[in-house]
Simulated scan of single mutants.
Amino acid sequence: MNPLTVVTGGSRGIGAATVRQLAAAGHDVVFCYQRDSAAADAVLRDVHAAGRQGRAVRADTTDPEQVARLFDTAAELGEPTGLVNNAGTTSPIGPFTDLTLADLRRVVDVNLIGYVLCAQQAARRFASGGAIVNVSSAAATLGSPGEYVHYAAVKAATDTLTVGLAKELGPRNIRVNAVSPGIIDTEIHTVSGLPDRAAQVGAQTPLGRPGQPDEVAAAIVWLLSDAASYTSGAVLRVAGGR
């Protein structure tokens, strides 16, 4: 039986790269997206071109009913065996004192509440075991002073969620890990108000460049694979040395 993996935020950036690499590795994939149906359709075509089954579901991961619908769609293809918690957002870069309540709530809702809701569904439905990968951030340990301390704090919570779930779900043969990307060249930086941020900050890393979505996706795919069968509770840093 082919593995069946659910990916949140799968139409662009790290999520899209992950969906494509999973399909190439033999996974059937169900992914959600929020707005860009054209981008989702393009990713889905690549899944089918790889000879795998796939579905694209428009869903907001902060809504429990929509999360359940995402997993119901996956169940139409078989028993899910993997989850990639990737859907995320940030907010405009600026001093902590300028942070608005609306931006704070949105970052917490998408990057933490959404992860918890999706992990709950996975834990309930992975009857034969499986693997969860949470997409965290190097910001969790760097703190992001003067940029988005609240986002860094939420990503630190993601790391704690990963460790706790790995211990709770391990006896059920469900592995839980995280990847912790550094500065990656994706569209998320437009939300921060600095679309060129990846190039600027990437140049300051020991490797002298930003990372690419495929480099993070490769780590995610490995953590979902049998090659990582004894890896659980790990936070794998993919951050160019930062």
Rank of each mutant, 00 (worst) to 15 (best):
R125A: 11
I113N: 14
G129S: 09
F71G: 10
L83R: 10
G130H: 12
A75R: 13
I93P: 00
D98H: 13
D103Y: 04
L70F: 09
V135M: 08
Q53P: 00
R69N: 11
V108E: 03
E65S: 15
T81I: 06
A157S: 12
G82K: 12
T62P: 08
V133W: 10
A59H: 08
L70Y: 06
V149W: 00
T81N: 09
F71I: 01
S136N: 07
V149P: 06
Y148S: 15
G143W: 09
E147D: 05
R125L: 15
V116L: 13
P95G: 02
N86M: 02
A139E: 01
E76Y: 02
S137K: 05
R106W: 04
N85C: 14
S144I: 00
V84A: 06
A153S: 15
I113L: 15
D63P: 02
F71C: 07
A152N: 10
D60F: 04
L112V: 05
N86S: 07
G82N: 12
V163Q: 11
R105S: 11
A153M: 14
T90F: 08
A119K: 04
N111G: 06
A131S: 15
R55G: 03
V107R: 04
F126G: 00
A122E: 06
R124E: 15
A139I: 05
R58C: 13
V135D: 03
P92K: 08
V108S: 01
A157M: 08
A127V: 14
S91F: 07
T81E: 05
A56H: 04
R105P: 00
T162W: 12
A56S: 12
S91I: 02
A153L: 10
A56M: 05
A68W: 01
E79N: 07
Q121D: 12
G88K: 02
Q120R: 15
G130S: 07
A102Y: 00
K155S: 09
G143F: 09
I93W: 15
Q66P: 03
A75K: 11
R124T: 14
A153W: 03
T158W: 00
R69M: 13
A102R: 13
A102L: 04
V110H: 12
N85G: 14
A122H: 12
A139H: 06
T89N: 03
T62C: 13
C118K: 03
R125K: 06
T141I: 14
I93A: 15
T61E: 05
G143L: 09
Y151F: 14
A122L: 08
F96P: 00
G146H: 13
L83M: 05
L70D: 01
R69D: 14
G130I: 14
G146Q: 11
L142N: 14
A87V: 10
G94D: 12
G143K: 08
S91K: 11
V133P: 06
T73I: 03
N111L: 12
A131H: 06
V116M: 13
V163K: 11
A74F: 08
R106E: 10
P64S: 10
